[in-house]
Nucleic acid binder design. Structure first.
Lengths: 216, 216
DNA sequence: CAGTGGTCTAGACCACGTC
DNA sequence: ACGTGGTCTAGACCACTGG
C-alpha cells in the first residue's frame, strides 16, 4: 500500500486533484490498484497465463477442453548463438546463449518438441537449477526465479519437415511433415527474451488464438 | 465535431471539470478524439486492417514482406446452415445463410481456398452485389456496405486433408495435406458475424500473430 | 487573435471499508 | 467514527490550432 492521496499531495506540494490525476494515470497503466475505503496498492505484474496457453492439443472427445501438456526436459546447456537467434536477439546479444530442449506430452504421447533459446547472462542461473522441479509452464518460472516478465509474443506457424532430433522425440519417421511454430517473446520494454522453435505432430496439432477487442 | 467543453458544461449545467472527466472517459473508450486548439470529434470506428492481414504468404526472398493475396470469387449463394456454422452462430440464427467461395492467389498461383459463411438476413444484399468490384479484403466491405464492424476474431489452425473442391482449386492431388484455418469473427457486441474455413497450400503457408501488450 | 483542449488549484460532499 | 478513494465545483493559466 502507498500513502493516501492526501498525504502524497501534501508531501509533493501539489493539489489533491493533480495527485489524483497522476494516480489515475498509473492505474490506467496497470501499475496501481485503488480501492475506495481501503487505499492505493502497487499491483503485482499480472502474468496473463491464459495468453500463453494456446497450444491446444485437441481432446479426442471435446476440442474445447484446453490442455496443458506435461513437460519433460531433455537438456539445458550453453551453446553458441545460432544465426536466427542472433537475428531475434539483436546486436546487443552475447555470443552464447542457453538452449533448453524439452518434449511435451499428453496422455503419455509426445506431442511437441521444443527448442528454447534464452539470453545470457540473464538466465545463467538456469544451468544450475534443478529442472525437475519446474512446472510445465516456463514463463511463471522466468517471473519467479529471474524477475523477468514476458508480456508479448509473436508466433509464426508454418509446415515443415522433422529434423533428425525432432523426428526421434516425436516418434515419427525422419523427414516426416510437422507443424512448426517459431516464437519470439518479449518483456514489457520490447526486449526479446526468448526465441523458441517448436515441432508438433501434425495430426493432433491445433493452435487457437483470438485477436481484437474481446467482448465481455 | 461536437461542441466545446465550455458549451457542453453550460448546456448540461455541470462544472467544466466534470464535463472534462466525462469526455475523458469517452476518449478512453475510443469513441471521441480530442485535439487541443481544434476541438472534440466523434471517432470513426477504426477498422484495424492490420489485425486481419495475418495470412502471410512468405515471399521467396524476404519472409518479412507481408502480402495481400489477390482474390477471385467463385460463387456466392444462399445455402442451408451447415451444422458447425449453426453451432457458431448460435440459437438465434436463421435456417439459411450465405456461402461465399473464393480463391486467393499470389503471383498467379492459388494459395488459399476460402469458404465464408455469413448471416441472413444481414447480408442478403450481398447476393445482388457486383462481386467483381470488391477489393481483396472482405471486412472493409462489411463496414462500408452493411455498416457491420468486425472487431475480434478467433482463429484455429490445424492440419488436414484437402476436400475434392479445395484440392481442385489449389491444384493439388485429392486428399493432399493442407493447412486448415477456421475463423469465427464477431462484431463489438460479441455477436458472431462470420464463420470461415480456409484451406492453404502447406508448403508456402505461414501464419503470424502477436499477442500481449505490443511495445511501442 | 480568439477559441480550443491540457493542466492545475483549493476547496466540498459523498460512498465505502475498517475498526 | 474515521480514513479511504470517487465525484463534483468554480475558478486560473498555459499550449496549441486556425483563420
Amino acid at each position: 500500500m502507498i500513502p493516501s492521496e492526501n498525504r502524497l499531495a501534501e508531501e509533493y506540494g501539489v493539489a489533491l486533484a493533480t495527485m489524483r490525476m497522476a494516480l489515475k494515470q498509473l492505474v490506467d497503466e496497470g501499475l496501481l490498484d485503488r480501492r475506495r475505503g481501503t487505499g492505493t496498492f502497487v499491483k503485482q505484474p499480472a502474468f496473463r497465463a491464459d495468453l500463453f496457453r494456446f497450444f491446444h492439443v485437441h481432446d479426442v472427445d471435446d476440442p474445447d477442453i484446453p490442455v496443458i501438456p506435461e513437460s519433460r526436459i531433455l537438456s539445458c546447456q550453453e551453446v553458441p548463438l545460432p544465426p536466427e537467434v542472433q537475428k531475434a536477439f539483436g546486436a546487443d546479444s552475447a555470443s552464447h546463449c542457453i538452449k533448453l530442449e524439452r518434449v511435451r506430452l499428453w496422455s503419455g504421447e509426445p506431442m511437441l518438441f521444443e527448442e528454447v533459446y534464452l539470453r545470457l547472462p540473464d538466465f545463467e542461473e538456469l544451468l544450475s537449477l534443478n529442472l525437475k522441479t519446474m512446472g510445465p509452464l516456463l514463463y511463471p518460472v522466468f517471473l519467479e526465479k529471474f524477475g523477468i516478465l514476458i508480456s508479448s509474443a509473436t508466433d509464426e506457424l508454418s509446415f515443415g519437415i522433422a529434423t533428425e532430433t525432432s523426428a526421434k522425440q516425436l516418434e515419427l519417421a525422419s523427414e516426416a511433415p510437422v507443424a512448426v511454430i517459431q516464437r519470439i517473446a518479449r518483456n514489457p520494454a520490447g526486449r526479446v527474451i526468448e526465441f523458441r522453435r517448436v515441432h508438433g505432430r501434425p495430426e493432433r496439432f491445433r493452435y487457437r488464438v483470438t485477436l481484437g477487442d474481446q467482448p465481455a
